[in-house]
């Protein structure tokens, strides 16, 4: 996880922002179980928690979240970090009013991850878009094909190595 790197912070603010698991556990006891299941954790605010999960454990972890009330998959997106690709899932609990953002790192040469469409149906189009833009393959997705770009488009535009060039006009 990245650390906050601001210079002009005053001390009080910086001290306030470093939240730990114990700070939010009274309102959210589930956090202790989540800590055991994840590789890394960063607590941005009381209701924004970033976790990092290995791609083998993603499906189990998502099922676990769904069982505990995280029923709204807000967004799925990819990020090209140059050395590796990253998929981020933003999951919101309508009951707890808390957002857990799951990050999964994928190697460049093998960008395959399990699809979560079996858990949240809303992942369908989001995953198709991520495939379209980054070429990340979602295993067991029912209909994985390009969504925004035409089928004959070459390359994945949001990757950092994609060059925007003049194309032939009609």
């Amino acid at each position: 996880m990245r650390k906050e790197g601001r210079n002009d912070d005053n001390e009080a603010e910086a001290g306030e922002r470093k939240l730990t698991v114990d700070d939010i556990s009274p309102a959210f006891p589930l956090i202790y179980e989540i800590v055991k299941k994840v590789d890394g954790m960063h607590i941005q605010t009381c209701n924004k928690i970033w976790v990092e999960v290995k791609r083998e454990n993603l499906l189990d972890f998502c099922k676990f979240l769904k069982e505990h009330g995280f029923d709204h998959l807000s967004c799925v997106l990819g990020v090209d970090m140059k050395e590796y690709l990253e998929v981020v899932y933003h999951v919101w609990s309508y009951i707890d009013r808390r957002m857990i953002s799951i990050k999964v790192k994928l190697p460049y040469d093998d960008p395959v991850v399990d699809s979560v469409t079996s858990i949240w149906k809303s992942a369908d189009w989001h995953e198709r878009e991520t495939y379209d833009m980054f070429g990340i393959v979602f295993r067991n997705h029912p209909n994985l094909k390009r969504i925004l770009l035409p089928d004959d488009f070459e390359g994945h535009p949001l990757r950092k190595d994609f060059k925007v060039e003049e194309r032939g006009w009609y």
Binding site: L149, P157, F162, V164, E165, R167, W169, Y170
Partner: peptide
Amino acid sequence: YDSYNVVGGVDKI
């Protein structure tokens, strides 16, 4: 103007 998917002007078509 610098998009990969936009035709720069409809008069090209």
